[in-house]
Design a protein around this nucleic acid. Structure first.
Lengths: 338, 338
DNA sequence: CTGTTAGCGCCTTCAT
DNA sequence: ATGAAGGCGCTAACAG
């Protein structure tokens, strides 16, 4: 453990440490004999290069910083896995920072990443969408990319096509003849939830259905929230025949509440989720949902970031990934006699 | 971005760069006047310390390396969040490496972490339980701690009390009068799954119930595996009245299969899970399960690791965390007339 | 109180 | 083909 350095290898091989450096990096020309000798010497004393020193010299840490919302939820975890996989494919390591729910520690962690001289930063932190200070740091700091909006812009966004994410499931329900379609929304402070709700309203309007605030409830992205929201919904609008739930986790709670109320899914009430969470395939009944490309989003973010690092380009060119419906057993035609 | 250094600050404040270092680190004694001048200069030109250079000098990177199984599953994600939270509390950053399912890239990533001179390593990689090379590297490398067994030992293990994890749910079912208790196991290559199955057999034996291989099926830790395993189980042993499922994800599949077979839970068949996964609270019916302290395990691992780093102690003192039952609606007394 | 002298471990010219 | 010199940005002694 007593850190052996290039010098130690050099001493053992009777050459200067610069020559060792060359050999171990496959750079300049060195005679096969000494090359061999050096390689053996390095093996024997267990030389491990010091990436810190190399980075100091090369001014590149081969490290990406990731700032993410709590990823004990599967969806941000998938993006994170995508990021990590793609980063490693390019020989980069990932420094992980997961935020408090309110994102209040984001600025501090950005600073840590900058001190560590990360080559780039990937943000997956919806809680800081409106944080101006975060936006400023990101614009002046190392190249960066985000999976959510950044206050003040200037940072390219990578994400799923937002329009379709909401339009697809609502249109699906409409095509099944549903007219009283409720929605259980995500946390309404979040842009993505606002957007989904707006598209939901718009699609209904296009089909001649006026907005009814009784049909909208906030489930705060969580199982329990979906459960509670559904009970509230049923209490005041018992004539709904379908629910568009803005994520699958809430949909689990929705299905549970519907079951408690004695509503058969999909016969009495259809349910569409969003995300295509692993459990969606085996809820009771299996959930029709929107497949979101979380993993790919993470990978695409890394690629975009590397492009920007390489080209020093500064034009924020967003990347949009397609979404698609996954049809399972939680949706059916609207009940007759309505 | 053109990296401003201590020298630049020094030039602006008309002092030597070493003095700047002192001020910015609150070390030696400096006159209030120059101190003030230096701090202002640093602000003005936007000085950001270079952690790489500091680490090179201080021989401590203030970094922990984490090697983890794919954490798109909630349970390893929770441990990872626990690790990250606790690490940050101590001012350490986390470098993340997530492994291929077979763990074949573990050795490579261990090497990367060593090159980056991490202060310690936390392993959460069941796939490498039997990998001798991994064990060797861990014993000779930086201080480390693991959440799973390490081949050859020598690395302290942090984890939930393994005996109780299986005994609690099985005893619960026995106390409800069940006698034909099946188990859907995790991937049988994994020590934890082997252990749970062994304890399951042992507890049954203690109650005078001989082992029946018909009652054991491998669900491979996944929703679909649990689903398929249950169908197989029901095909050949239709008299079972309870199933102990070795994780909640598989239990989701189990409930689904039971529903397809027309078996009411818990009236016709009780189900107990393991993990206390977030969705367990709202499955249909809500799942009785074993609460596993994943988050705490991660946090405890960091604390143990820091202890070892500080004391250079080398005695592998394991840490065992308690588990507990969470009683919900998926278990009931064994049906009469059996 | 402040500056000088020495590295940490590595890489990049440039001579030899 | 090999080695010497110089520097990346910082900290730690010690000297003035």
């Amino acid at each position: 453990m007593a850190s052996v350095s290039l010098r130690d290898v050099a001493a053992r091989a009777n050459v200067s440490f610069q020559t060792v450096s060359k050999v171990l990096n496959g750079k300049g020309a060195v005679s096969p004999a000494t090359r061999q000798r050096i390689i053996e010497a390095a093996e024997e004393i267990g030389y491990v290069p010091n990436a810190l020193a190399r980075s100091l010299q090369s001014r590149s840490s081969l490290t990406l910083g990731v700032i993410t919302v709590d990823f004990s939820n599967t969806t941000p975890a998938l993006s994170l896995v995508g990021i990590e996989r793609e980063a490693r494919r390019h020989g980069l390591s990932v420094i992980l920072s997961s935020l408090e729910p309110d994102g209040s520690d984001c600025v501090r962690y950005l600073r840590v990443l900058m001190e560590r001289r990360v080559d780039g930063i990937i943000m997956n932190a919806p809680a800081t969408e409106e944080d101006e200070e975060v936006g400023r740091l990101l614009r002046t700091g190392p190249p960066s990319v985000s999976l959510h909006d950044i206050a003040g812009g200037g940072v390219p966004i990578v994400g799923a096509e937002s329009e379709g994410t909401a339009a697809l499931p609502v249109r699906h329900l409409l095509s099944l003849g549903h007219r009283r379609i409720a929605t259980v929304t995500g946390f309404q402070q979040r842009h993505s939830a606002q957007q989904r709700t707006a598209v939901y309203r718009q699609v209904l309007a296009e089909h001649g259905l006026p907005h009814d605030p009784l049909l909208v409830e906030d489930g705060e992205w969580e199982v329990e929230g979906g459960y509670a929201a559904t009970h509230r919904l049923l209490d005041r609008a018992s004539d709904i025949t379908a629910i568009y739930v803005q994520n699958d986790l809430m949909a689990v709670g929705v299905l549970n509440a519907l079951h408690e109320r004695g509503r058969q899914v999909p016969d009495d009430c259809s349910v569409v989720g969003c995300d295509d969470h692993p459990v969606a395939a085996r809820t009771i009944p299996p959930l029709t949902t929107v497949h979101m490309p979380f993993f790919d989003t993470g990978a695409a973010a890394v690629r975009l970031l590397l492009d920007r690092i390489a080209s020093r380009s500064t034009t924020p060119e967003d990347v949009v990934l397609p979404v698609s419906m996954v049809y399972r057993a939680s949706t059916a035609s609207a009940p007759a006699g309505r």
